[in-house]
């Protein structure tokens, strides 16, 4: 355990407009972070840690993100600089090149190669519930495997090159989480995943503490 000062690191949440922030805020606070939302691109580029939450449809999420001037560019810039960034659920899919869900064929942020596709009809859709995540040993933030809570109809089915991944199965394997350096994107909801998710959020907050410039 790292030495945690009385005031934990500040984590900024991007309010994309459609996401329910109450659970993710509560989860990060329990993990020791100071939490607030921010729409300011300059501070989002440099912040110790940023969370891109997201529930709902791909187009609405993208619209919410693009509607905040400069935020998409700020995200791309901070991830390129390898600053601690956590994307949750739809947040993961917004990092991709595209999603089958988009009626207009809108492009995602293009940070992670791949396109989200819908679960097959052979399983219940949306996937709502706890699924077993099996983790690549290279996943430092994701940690070891465990049960995580998912709420999604679309997923990334192919492992993206250059990322360490956690995988789960719902009508076939899919990417449950991916990470590279200080970027972690979870298809599941760590803030709703009990002890497993709480431990993950603590590791993320600790990473932000370590990386934070003095």
């Amino acid at each position: 355990m790292s030495d945690v000062s009385d005031a934990g690191p500040e984590v900024l949440i991007i309010p994309t407009g459609i996401a329910n922030l109450a659970s993710v805020e509560a989860g990060l606070r329990r993990a020791g972070a100071q939490v607030r939302t921010s729409r300011d691109p300059a501070e989002l580029v440099d912040a110790a840690a940023v969370v891109l939450p997201g529930v709902g449809a791909f187009d609405a999420g993208l619209e919410g993100l693009r509607g905040l001037r400069g935020i998409a560019e700020a995200l791309v810039e901070r991830i390129a600089a390898d600053r601690p960034t956590l994307a949750v659920c739809l947040g993961l899919q917004l990092l991709l090149h595209a999603s089958e869900e988009s009626a207009s064929g809108a492009a995602g942020l293009g940070i992670v190669p791949g396109r989200a596709t819908r679960f097959p009809d052979s399983v219940r859709v949306p996937q709502l519930g706890w699924n077993l995540v099996e983790s690549d040993p290279a996943c430092r933030l994701l940690g070891s495997g465990g049960y995580a809570y998912f709420a999604n109809s679309y997923r990334l089915a192919e492992i993206p090159a250059g990322f360490a991944c956690g995988l789960a199965d719902h009508g076939g394997r899919f990417v449950a989480a991916l990470e590279r350096g200080n970027l972690l994107a979870c298809q599941f909801h760590p803030e709703l995943s009990g002890r497993y998710g709480a431990a993950l959020l603590r590791r993320f907050v600790e990473r932000a503490q370590e990386v934070q410039p003095c």
Partner: peptide, 8 residues
């Protein structure tokens, strides 16, 4: 569903 998503 349009506002908050089907999963909600």
């Amino acid at each position: 569903a349009a506002r908050f998503g089907v999963q909600c």
